[in-house]
Design a binder for these strands. Structure first.
Lengths: 221, 221
DNA sequence: GTCCTAAGATTGTTAGACAAGAATGCACGA
DNA sequence: TCGTGCATTCTTGTCTAACAATCTTAGGAC
């Protein structure tokens, strides 16, 4: 880790920028699982005050990207099999409701279609990191398109952990280049046809496959 | 609002105690909808530092019990009809998954059964505030009994707004003393019988009724 | 009456400090 | 040599004080 990091001040708040910077470094694996992040260390690296670093850590903790208890240092969590299963059970609950609601309208979200194209490009060019990003964007777009602010917020609460897990194991997971895109296409097709239960079934299958892929890389530890 | 409030220092953290105190005052209607809460005002009333008040406000904002944008004062939100519908749609998604999972085991959660008894007592004695508390406890117990940490956290993210809305309209809602208990009993019975779809249906009916009761008091504004 | 400016209020961020809890290592004894 | 206990050190929780940036409001000019 470099001793100094630069923050893009696009977001209005300094805390926002710091939060976003650390978030990216965690989900793409730059900060590995088990790594400890102290407040003073972050404050020093980014040249911000400790309360600012503290606020960013608290927001990351709320999203499951860090864990910490009182008076103890925040650490990037290591998800075991039970937790990955819990994560995907919760994720399934939200996303099933989302695709079912979308199928009821028959409208395929434009953002999801765009993300789908990005996945195909990334798979073709073997850009694994882009593939993960586009996959997350695809699922996020599905949920956001429902238009429910609270469903979206609940999804945000867990998708970060999904992103983290995929990003951390990214190097080991060189398999399945195009299958993800095919499974996504089946979901979108069912949505367009207005088939609610079919859309939910395709999504369930896709998430089960994704969970299986993660768990298999986990066992290869 | 009194100029001084006392904090019970049960929780280890001062921020926790402050958060919990303000939370209670919001959900039981002591702090009404639309009320503005500034950091310095809370800090003065509770005799804590402004950063402590700030942290408590941020946590309440994350749970939807307050709303605020950058550089603006936090305010207790007023939920309109569209937002109440969104709230119940999101709530339905989580709780349906919960009772379905519980029915798969056939085990009625002990905490839910206890809350059910508390509701019956409160309904008999016309203690509306206790009735609201016990109702929230009932639904929270159902979700918690699934044993999914993330499902529980997502539920926490929205149940606060449910509590807020029920608590704020509590004075106006003197109807339906025992119907709530009956609807709850139907859910528990289906869970015990292991009837997944029936449990989900009973829950859906119950939440639709609850939403209707809230919306009717809302229109009587 | 309307628009603009300026003062006040509120939040965002920083610095420094002290206390309390947790973790670490070292010395001492078995 | 190994394990236990204590003290040091690290880290976080909270506070005070202050300044900057932004939002709001009130007053004045036209």
């Amino acid at each position: 880790m470099s001793t100094e990091a630069r923050l893009e001040l696009g977001p209005s708040s300094l805390t926002d920028a710091l939060y976003e910077s650390i978030r990216k470094r965690i989900v793409n694996g730059e900060i590995p699982q088990g790594e400890k992040l102290t407040e003073v260390r972050l404050a020093t690296e980014y040249d911000v005050a400790r309360p600012t670093a503290k606020a960013a850590l608290e927001r990351l903790t709320a999203l499951g990207l860090l864990r910490r208890t009182a008076h103890k240092t925040a650490v990037v969590p290591v998800l075991d099999e039970a937790e990955i299963r819990d994560l995907f059970f919760s994720r399934m609950t939200i996303e099933k409701a989302a695709v079912s609601a979308l199928a009821a309208t028959g409208q395929v979200p434009a953002d999801a279609a765009r993300a789908q194209v990005a996945i195909e490009y990334a798979a073709r060019d073997r850009l694994f990191e882009n593939q993960v990003e586009a996959d997350i964007a695809f699922h996020t777009a599905l949920v956001a398109a429902v238009g429910s602010r609270r469903l979206t917020r609940m999804h945000e609460l867990i998708i970060g952990e999904v992103h983290l897990t995929m990003g951390q194991y990214q190097a080991h997971r060189k398999a399945a280049p195009t299958t993800v895109a095919e499974e996504h296409a089946a979901i979108l097709e069912a949505i367009q046809q207005g088939a609610q239960s079919a859309a939910a079934d395709h999504l369930a299958y896709h998430l089960e496959q994704a969970q299986g892929r993660l768990l298999s890389t986990l066992s290869g530890h």
